[in-house]
């Protein structure tokens, strides 16, 4: 909430114009921000009208002729889009199914680690990949998993048939999920560990007096202590199913796995910049995603708030 100053006794008696004059410096400070948001955020939102138009470069967004819902109608019968839509949801859910439990397991293990210095070193290592770009991670992955990469060389030695995970349908999905977990699991433990430190230590004392061993303390005290955060994270990640991870997919995929790996964002990019573009149709695809996203996020925010947690700020 906004702060009230002691000068506010006068303030409450002021007229609107006086209040505006009183805050003149605040408006001055905000002016650049206002310009920024209008130009770079709201003008593109206005540009979404393109989804209901057919784009004529000579006339711009404003002058291009309206065609109603035709772009959206084309969307429902476009095979490329429908595949991308399906892939987006499948990849998102695969990431949730495998990516959601891992940080919790890792958190519980870290919490039981007794050598504090070693624990800090490990946490520094675990959280580091979060700060790398997917360009970098994809580069490292290619080297490891390519047909002649070290993983395949290892497979050859132990007698597992060689396969190129980068071009194999199932293998590539596994690589997407695995590399996302490699990058983000450590970072996701931080919030859980913070939640554990806020558990009242007297609850542990009481459990110990009742004869609970370490494992029982974990099951009956630690896990219930972070259950609310687990639920929040799960619901929030369901709100992001339309974002299957453009940065990752776009840097890692190739034509051999388009059928299973092309997601809505990468599909929009490809049809716009790598084929003959239909800006109206591309915008309609983007807008469809945006609207579904908006509905999902507002819904999960409501759900999360209903069980007493703070939603996405």
């Amino acid at each position: 909430m906004a702060k009230n100053t002691m000068l506010d006794e006068h303030y409450s008696k002021m007229s609107l114009m006086q209040r505006i004059a009183y805050h003149k410096y605040i408006y001055l400070i905000l002016l650049p921000a206002l310009v920024y948001y209008i130009v770079f955020k709201y003008v593109p939102i206005y540009g979404l009208t393109l989804a209901f138009k057919t784009y004529k470069a000579s006339k711009g967004i404003w002058g291009s002729p309206w065609i109603g819902l035709e772009n959206f109608h084309n969307l429902t019968i476009n095979v490329g889009f429908l595949t991308a839509f399906k892939n987006t949801i499948i990849i998102s859910f695969l990431k949730i199914i495998f990516g959601f439990p891992m940080p919790i397991i890792l958190t519980l293990l870290i919490n039981e680690m007794r050598i504090k210095k070693y624990k800090n070193v490990l946490q520094t290592i675990y959280t580091f990949p979060h700060f790398l770009s997917w360009v970098v991670v994809a580069g490292m992955c290619f080297n490891l998993f390519a047909g002649d990469g070290i993983i395949n060389k290892f497979f050859a030695v132990v007698g597992i048939p060689q396969q190129n995970l980068l071009t194999d349908h199932k293998g590539f999905l596994g690589l997407l999920v695995g590399s996302a977990m490699w990058k983000e699991t450590g970072w996701s433990t931080i919030l859980y560990l913070a939640a554990i430190t806020s558990i009242d230590t007297s609850i542990y004392e009481a459990a110990r007096i009742d004869g609970a061993n370490r494992f029982q303390q974990m099951i009956y005290v630690t896990i219930p202590g972070i259950a609310a955060m687990m639920a929040t994270n799960l619901v929030l990640s369901c709100g992001h199913v339309m974002d299957a991870g453009f940065d990752q997919v776009f840097n890692m995929y190739n034509a051999a796995v388009f059928d299973v790996a092309d997601i809505i964002d990468s599909y929009v990019y490809r049809i716009t910049f790598q084929q003959t573009p239909d800006f109206g149709f591309s915008t309609a695809v983007g807008m469809f995603k945006g609207v579904v996203n908006l509905i999902l996020i507002l819904t999960v925010n409501k759900v999360v708030k209903s069980f007493g947690q703070k939603g996405i700020v």
Partner: peptide, 15 residues
């Protein structure tokens, strides 16, 4: 509102 909704690729590119 800008946290939840954006113009997206094409309108931004044209801008």
């Amino acid at each position: 509102f800008t946290m939840y909704f954006a113009g997206g690729l094409i309108p931004t590119y044209l801008l």
